[in-house]
Design a protein around this nucleic acid. Sequence first.
RNA 1: GGGCGCGUAGCUCAGCGGUAGAGCACCACGUUCACACCGUGGGGGUCCGUGGUUCGAUCCCACGCGCGCCCACCA
Length: 892
Amino acid sequence: MPDTVTPADKAPLDKTFESARVEARHYQAWEDAGAFACEPTSDKQPYTIIMPPPNVTGSLHMGHALTFTLQDVLIRYHRMRGRDTLWQPGQDHAGIATQMVVERQLAEQGKTRHDLGREAFIEKVWEWKAESGGAISSQLRRLGASADWPRDRFTLDEGVSKAVRKVFVDLYKEGLIYKDSRLVNWDPALETAISDLEVEQKEIKGNLWYFKYPVEGQPDRFLAVATTRPETMLGDTAVAVHPDDERYADLIGKHCVLPIVGRKILIVGDDYADPETGSGAVKITPAHDFNDFDVGRRHNLEMINVLDRKGRINEHAPPDYQGLDRFEARKKVVAAIEELGLLEKIEPHTHMVPYGDRGGVPIEPYLTEQWYVDAETLAKPAIEAVETGRTKFVPENWSKTYFEWMRNIQPWCISRQLWWGHQIPAWYGPDGEIFVAHDEDEAKALACAHYGEEKPLERDPDVLDTWFSSGLWPFSTLGWPDETPELKRYYPGDVLVTGFDIIFFWVARMMMLGIHFMGDVPFRHVYIHALVRDEKGQKMSKSKGNIIDPLELIDQYSADSLRFTLAVMAAQGRDIKLAPQRVEGYRNFGTKIWNAARFCEMNRCALPADFDPEGVQQTVNKWVVGETARVAVETAAGIEAYKFNEAAGGLYQFVWNTFCDWYLEFIKPILNGDEAAAAAETRATAAWVLDQIILMLHPFMPFITEELNEHFAFVPGRPLITADWPVLEGLDAPEAKVEMDWVVRLITDIRAVRAEMNVPAGAQIPCLVQGANVETLARLERHAGYILRLARLTGVEAAAEMPKGAVQIVLGEATYGLPLADVIDIAAERGRLAKAIEKTDKEIDGIDKRLSNPGFLAKADPSVVEETREKRGGLAGQRDKLAAALARLAEM
RNA sequence: GGGCGCGUAGCUCAGCGGUAGAGCACCACGUUCACACCGUGGGGGUCCGUGGUUCGAUCCCACGCGCGCCCACCA
């Protein structure tokens, strides 16, 4: 076998791996080479991941680091498997979040967006985006994300916007988008409607105020009602009691006089009133409470809106209250009621208060006209797609969450009273007639046809919920509605990788819209990953100050370390508690690989072009080749099953234990020995294994592996990123494995005894073997090189009788003795052997119990019974030898 | 009120029908010609509790206890 050597003109590997120095260079080289680009015209099978578009305001946090690491692992792996990979990147305009950022800047100058006007404001936001937006894409590059950057999309791009308009128009025409006047969740801070999902329930310690409403025409008779929001009483238009509640039966149909306001309000009988709760009577404010709204509809009650857009009391309330903030009004109402002697009591009351997740203030149910999507209709096929397995959740359990929500889905409010976003493509005629169209010209034409003449039109000022455009992402990014080759090729995607927190927001919407417009699901798998928490298991948040910045970890420990840490901790169904110390640990793993590589280099390990791993002769080489093949299969299986922890963990163990701790140690004597052929084969094998490690680790640790690939060039001119993933078949070497496992065991046992007997680590001692069979003697002979070196022995010699004063080890049929007469502590040795016997006895007892159980013999699998018998035989033999060893000791 | 998940070595977690594993931490030893970001060895566990299914349970089932999370309109 030719003995290739690292070219002499090449400087050897640095003593340590300096990640910072190479990361940017390799990334640049990949990008320059177009290595991340999809190949729409190739004949490869496509593999697609649509990247969940981070907010344009975002900067890389740990959750991003996790999700994008896992996606990159999948992409890099499949790229190496010869797939035409598309990782479609993009960013989300994030309506509310982005608008808030710019509004905050304006506020610093004492201005509001209204001072600028819509057009100027939007221009300002675009300016902001150009300057500060999109920081995340350079941060993703630092993480090593191999996305197809030239295909980068923004949700407000013209192409995507065109898709948004078309979807709106089509759904409108189909009757699946409509305008409706009903209660919405209104955010008084942002002055916009928000969807149910954007409401966060917070537990608040408040009060329950009990008011007495005088019954009309019956002095001294009152109806007691309770409320957590006293100010809403200004909009009360009824009091409800249960129709079967005898206490109030005579009052149904009569009226109360609403205190402060003086309005006559109806007393209605309605099931909604629970006789068991409070007084059994409940005030009804149809315009400011979801339940009351329904009651109001049932009884045709007047709906009086008493709030304005900012949450202040409006002109429908008595003059004293007008213009007051809702919380000011609350105090004033309570004071007034008390003054009127109508305040029955105040109870402290802890309850859930809805907050806007962006605005951060309590939302108000508010009566407005908004645009809605008929989600119930769209949900049906989306539910079915998961039921029939066309889209599968991983872990499967999340489909329950999905079903739960989809089966109870509410109309989706898609209009927002914001400026930043896709303006709704609806125009209004002078009489309020609605013209939904792709553009203004079309709207004008429609209006003209409708009115028979040209009329001035006004466009709907509202914009669409950000998730509306996100919901189209799997096909809008591929060119839809145009029939592009990319659309045809890369839809549906293979997998969506995301967190559980946006199953409703996003996954559900993509499913609904994807199926509706593309006729097929948007992705085959939905892999739901964990949440990254801090080391104490707390959610990371700015307010807790426990945020770990992934970029800092990259600076400190390298991108590879962070990636590997996240991957190895990404077990399904469990959150990741991340301690920076863990990243340090996996940085050490990188260093370990580096040093192993240096060892190979120093020993002139190189990969001959014609190297055939199947043809190796040395047992140790057969063994390591077989182990490499095994880990290659396991790693691939792990990645394909989204068990990243198993894939990465298996590699970790293989590299550190099998390759570094054992294989490299085994081969040292061979490399320095005088058998040239064996040495040459071993050098080649070591290089080959190192090369497989570089390949297999690449999806997880792209930078260090690229550096090593470039340095060694085991396969000259091979770009690692598109190299073939190791598919290693027919390399199993069961016999070599049995043999090497035995060697490992013998060395480990001898080392343990040495340590226990306090034999100086450096001391070389002889070893005697007694009772060994021919095979064992042959093995000892064959592997003497490793055994002597790693167990620090001067030699192993067969002996008919074990001499007195030897520390004895039982392994298989043989007993090994280390003659340590002068250092041996008889008592300690006796204790050690006795303990070993005790342990064996205990195990034998357990097995006997099983074997003497008729049920076990009758019902257990015969192979299990057979195994158990064999195990007992082995243990019994071991026990006898240990007993013999103890007996010999007694003679001393 | 519904739903989901978790409780295994000091810590973080694998395992998920044949009486327990890893990493980190800890202790001892070690300047062996890749690596102290290292090597070798070691200690450490009623696998939350109680029942049940089974020849056999950490693993399956039921209940309980404790801890998370999600959804939900109780005045």
